[in-house]
């Protein structure tokens, strides 16, 4: 048994060495597939994280109707504060709101004067607790929040909903793309390795004719495939880390995502292990399919 293992390992090493360029091509194919898939996956999960951050920020503005006096407003504030979904409430009085607006938009003063006292309503700025942010609880909460004192409830739900729907679409697209990528990579690796089995068909055929089993012939190729996958995955991991560091730096300059823990180039252990696993599987399946193809047609 140990002798067989020795023969298999020697054969694998020899085949890797003697078909260095084809093995490099196979590793390159795997690296490219993982890079493409990984980049898409990364973009998607970054977006996903961002949406989660925004969702967590769901935030309602409840505008008081004109004629609700400050005492009444204070009472409503207390009621809202008592609601279990509410994380925090800020009371913005009409005076505060006007001051804020005037500070932000200097030219607005004359317009506000024109519109009169009630132009800028007082409001409650409500932040929800994260666990109440699901679709249903949100609309439920809005219903219970509704009362005569409020003129209008304004929340960014539509925006979040649209983004979530878009993300769902993107995920479906990603799954389709991933499947396609895996198939293409297996096909390409299989064909590259078919060239290897073709180049070595005299030897492989003779091995089969003198009584080698499929396992004995295939094992070195499976090892070869695993090595290709490993190297391909390492290349992809390197490239993805670089890509991530560069792109995320850029993106964060453009769109601050809050305290996003995304900015460094490391991919995370599970991603690295995932890429290694998928890479090795691609190599092994690709090489395995090439050997099987050879075995079926050899005498």
């Amino acid at each position: 048994m140990s002798a067989t293992l020795g023969h298999i390992l020697r054969r694998a090493a020899r085949s890797l060495w003697e078909n260095l360029s084809l093995n490099a091509v196979a590793a390159g194919v795997i690296a490219a597939a993982l890079l493409l898939g990984g980049a898409f996956w990364g973009a998607m999960s970054t977006l996903n994280d961002a949406v989660e951050v925004w969702e967590r920020d769901v935030h309602l503005s409840a505008y008081f109707a004109s004629g609700v006096d400050e005492a009444r407003q204070r009472a409503v504030l207390a009621e809202v504060q008592a609601m279990p979904e509410v994380e925090a409430v800020t009371w913005v009085t009409a005076t505060d709101a006007r001051a804020y607006l005037e500070e932000r938009v200097p030219d607005i003063q004359p317009i506000l004067v024109e519109l009169g006292e009630d132009a800028v309503p007082a409001s409650l700025e409500i932040t929800l607790r994260a666990r109440y942010i699901g679709d249903e609880t949100l609309s439920d909460f809005v219903t219970r929040l509704q009362r005569a004192e409020f003129e209008e409830l304004d929340y960014g739900k539509e925006w979040v909903e649209r983004l979530t729907a878009f993300l769902g679409l993107l995920k479906a697209l990603g799954a389709a793309l991933g499947t396609l990528l895996v198939m293409a990579a297996v096909f390409l690796v299989g064909n590259t390795m078919h060239l290897v089995t073709y180049a070595r068909r005299a030897e492989l055929e003779t091995m089969k004719l003198v009584g080698a089993t499929l396992q004995f012939i295939a094992a070195p190729f499976l090892i070869e495939g695993a090595v290709q996958g490993l190297i391909g995955a390492l290349l992809a991991i390197g490239a993805l880390s670089g890509l991530k560091a560069v792109l995320l730096g850029r993106i964060q300059e453009l769109v601050p995502l809050g305290q996003a823990p995304l900015a460094d180039g490391s991919l995370g252990l599970s991603t690295v292990l995932g890429l290694l696993t998928v890479g090795v599987l691609l190599g092994v399946v690709g090489c395995g399919s090439a050997v099987l193809r050879f075995w079926r047609q050899a005498p």
Binding site: M1, A3, H7, T206, M207, V210, G211, T213, F216
Partner: peptide, 9 residues
């Protein structure tokens, strides 16, 4: 080769 495929030492 004929011996290798049967796992001889």
């Amino acid at each position: 080769l004929a011996l290798e495929v049967i796992g001889a030492e």
